[in-house]
Design a binder for these strands. Structure first.
Lengths: 254, 254
DNA sequence: ACTGAAGTTCCATAATGTGGAACTCCCCCG
DNA sequence: CGGGGGAGTTCCACATTATGGAACTTCAGT
């Protein structure tokens, strides 16, 4: 018992406690931590620290930079990207702006979050009538274009319980919804026509990350008088293309 | 040896390997994971899984929701907030724009990063004379308003070694700086007058996250001919109020 | 009220994790 | 240019821990 401040922990967790403290030390550090800093800072013998750090590295929780210093690993980087969305929004900004120029409609970027859709970036419509500011807004999965895209590609799962009927057109039957999701996978984009709010139409397409999974989605939305079925098809194909280009930038496999 | 896919790992890391796998399983899950899902999914006996999960929880790597299901803990949430600042930037955008309208000056959002200040969002000044584009720019902690706010609230620590004198007015004495930080905590905002660059004045206020810690800061900056001491006080109080409002949105305790 | 499942705690015992020593590698100084 | 010293890795005898089945508590559902 020679590590940092090792008062008695519950039985049978000394090794995990030590590894956890090393991990926290790296995650909370402002800069990559060399091995020496970690074993001296933790008070652990070099061989113990080395063994524990290698185990954390093996699971993707830590990684080493070119100088051998430890920093948070890919598992935590992906978690940060998903829950933070920051770099993603910055990277996506030019795509949102280009889609906005081409369509004139409101463009949003969203991520799946806790059984719902969370909007993380927006470019406003050039019309007087269009979406209000949705950044930070969370909407249900089943009755939004973005949400349907996440469901279709396994990036989110429907919560238990009955599906909320937001408008007379909201699909609340899980089987019927499931059928729609198959079409979304086939076309590469999804739509919701007056299911979230009367008069509101939206189209969305999936954005993939480096591991090929769907990490976000782009959407275009506007009033039904402008977003006719023909226009939805047009915009859907444009969105699918832009989302694919953004995916490549994020390192998604072709 | 009964856990998931346990081929031979390097000697002496079985417990850490098991705990790491549980942690990764939770971090990569789309929803909080109940205990049953984790022990069955991992193949570990209930008592083993329970002991390991409790250890991870104890170190802040995992936490339990009100139903007892596991999700990433505060350590990882803070890491995500810090490294994935874009969701934050998106959420903060309306605040930056309002402050910009009220003051006419450049408004920035920044996070502490690696012993410095990193600008992650900006609203430009309405004057012809104002800050250039600082997004992505890193500045030292000791001679910027943003940096002083981070130091005052424990969100960053000064690097070792002498403090760089950027202008004749830069405070490089650690004791003198420490005295200023106490005042910043008291007033709720900090300032830097011609310490980073001649003619440049800035005011900053802390933004808190869900756990009450300072995760970012808002600043207003401009030339000293406009940002007189009286004006700095005015803007400081405005900033403190807007930053507090943003903190509430981010879930900071009152 | 009862049953069964989720989750927690105990503790005898088997198996692992430890940490000092020895080692490699490489940078820096004289 | 050579040697010293520090960073980091690997080995393995042995002391100590981690294991997991059993027993338990709690609570939701019938």
């Amino acid at each position: 018992m020679s590590g940092e401040n090792e008062t008695r922990n519950p039985a049978g967790t000394q090794a995990v406690d030590r590894a956890a403290r090393l991990l926290v030390r790296v995650v909370e550090a402002d800069a990559p931590q060399p091995f020496t800093a970690l074993h001296t800072g933790s008070g652990l013998p070099k061989s113990t620290a080395s063994r524990l750090l290698s185990a954390l590295e093996r699971h993707g929780l830590l990684q080493r930079d070119h100088e051998g210093a430890f920093l948070p690993g890919p598992v935590l980087a992906r978690h940060a990207a998903r829950s933070g969305g920051a770099g993603l929004a910055a990277t996506a900004r030019p795509y949102l702006e280009r889609i906005g120029e081409k369509t004139g409609e409101t463009v949003n970027l969203a991520v799946p979050s806790g059984g719902a859709v969370e909007q993380i970036a927006q470019v406003d419509s050039s019309y007087l009538l269009g979406a209000t500011d949705w950044v930070g807004l969370r909407v249900p999965l089943h009755c939004s274009a973005l949400g349907k895209v996440f469901l279709a590609h396994g990036a989110a799962e429907l919560p238990r319980g009955p599906l909320e009927r937001r408008t007379p057109r909201t699909v609340t039957d899980r089987g019927e919804l499931g059928g729609e999701l198959a079409g979304i996978r086939r076309r590469g984009y999804g739509a919701a026509r007056e299911e979230l709010e009367p008069g509101l139409v939206a189209v969305a397409a999936p954005v993939r990350g480096g591991d090929g999974t769907v990490v976000a989605a782009l959407s275009v939305s506007g009033p039904s008088v402008r977003l006719t079925p023909e226009r939805v098809t047009e915009i859907g194909e444009l969105l699918a293309g832009e989302a694919a280009a953004l995916s490549e930038v994020l390192g998604a496999p072709r």
